[in-house]
Design a binder for these strands. Structure first.
Lengths: 189, 189
DNA sequence: CCTTTAATTGAACATGTGTTCAATAACTAT
DNA sequence: ATAGTTATTGAACACATGTTCAATTAAAGG
């Protein structure tokens, strides 16, 4: 059940062709025909794996969101998490992650791309919150709902960040998050 | 400078044709050609006003987000707003608004629509928060950033709601928001 | 190495896309 | 009503889309 090398080659060619075309065109300007021309892949082959150009970007973007989760696994970062209302901001790697892949995130937050990309980021953040706050459930509050609330709040900060062309530094974003979470007084490093 | 009646008629025909087609097709399945066929509008005319089918939906959806703002203007609802951390949930009309137009919001929150629709809702909520919390700025916190945080947190709840097929009632959503905002203890009606 | 399996190809077809143009029709303003 | 303005139309064009098919090619597994 190994992945067929031909499929791997085809997908890699399409990935690289997409990155190439995105240097001079917006995502929605990239046609399937042009993508296949640049990638030297038959158009029929494209349809064996995808339906739209956006699906190729989505597959690529999946590797990036996977990196977000991975950065949380690094043991020296993965400090014990406290009550979600007192998240230790040094453990929040998301702003640094976004800056690392800012060229991708400019696309992810642009108006005419599918909402699916947004969900991929949101789901990743929520997954991390669900895992790290499992011990701090509160009565009367639907914990999954609360994580959707909290995760999307953070993504809201990233929207704001993107609207200002990612001018602030990741550390400044972390600092603001700390203040919002009321860590400004009684900070514990 | 009145709107040309011909334009009004054309747009209305396209709006109605879109609603008609959406009964049996997803938004992305609706082609420009089919839309124009049903609307009895020349395809060239379509391009005089729009570029994509999604633009027609966006124009329609604008009327709906305008209704969200309008519901906040109703004087008997527009109670004095407190500190954003203590939002009086009875003034939060958003969950009821979403339920009123749930057929539209199912599309707005579906994966393959443009992110632009999401922004329209988010911007509307943020605008309301910015207006109603202007008096409660805090030092050290970028107030606009905080409103992006808070507005998107609420939209995160709606995402969660949509994921569960809008099963909860708007009042239950409001109740959960109240709990999250720490109104559970010391509630003031 | 050789057979089996399956991905890829190239070609074709109907339809959709995006644009242009002169001719026509419908609206506005006087 | 009439003249002037402008949206709409229909036709045509090159190109993109989505699908099908038999022929070919490359990989997997023994």
């Amino acid at each position: 059940m190994k992945p067929d090398l031909r499929v791997v080659k085809t997908k890699r060619a399409l990935h690289e062709a997409l990155v190439e075309l995105l240097k001079n065109h917006s995502l929605e300007q990239v046609t399937i025909s042009a993508l296949c021309r640049v990638a030297n892949v038959n158009r029929g082959t494209f349809y064996l794996h995808y339906a739209r150009v956006e699906d190729v970007f989505e597959e690529y973007f999946q590797e990036i969101t996977a990196d977000l989760a991975k950065s949380y696994e690094e043991p020296y970062r993965h400090v014990k998490l406290l009550n979600p209302r007192e998240l230790e901001p040094s453990t929040i790697r998301i702003f640094h992650h976004v800056q690392t892949y800012v060229d991708f995130y400019r696309i992810v937050f642009s108006k005419n791309v599918p909402l699916a990309y947004y969900y991929m980021l949101f789901d990743e953040v929520r997954k991390l919150l669900l895992r790290d706050t499992a011990a701090h459930k509160q009565d009367e509050i639907d914990h999954e709902l609360f994580c959707s609330y909290q995760a999307n709040a953070i993504v809201g900060m990233i929207i704001h960040w993107a609207e200002h062309d990612f001018a602030a530094t990741p550390d400044e974003m972390n600092e603001q998050l700390a203040h919002i979470l009321r860590l400004d007084s009684g900070r514990r490093v």
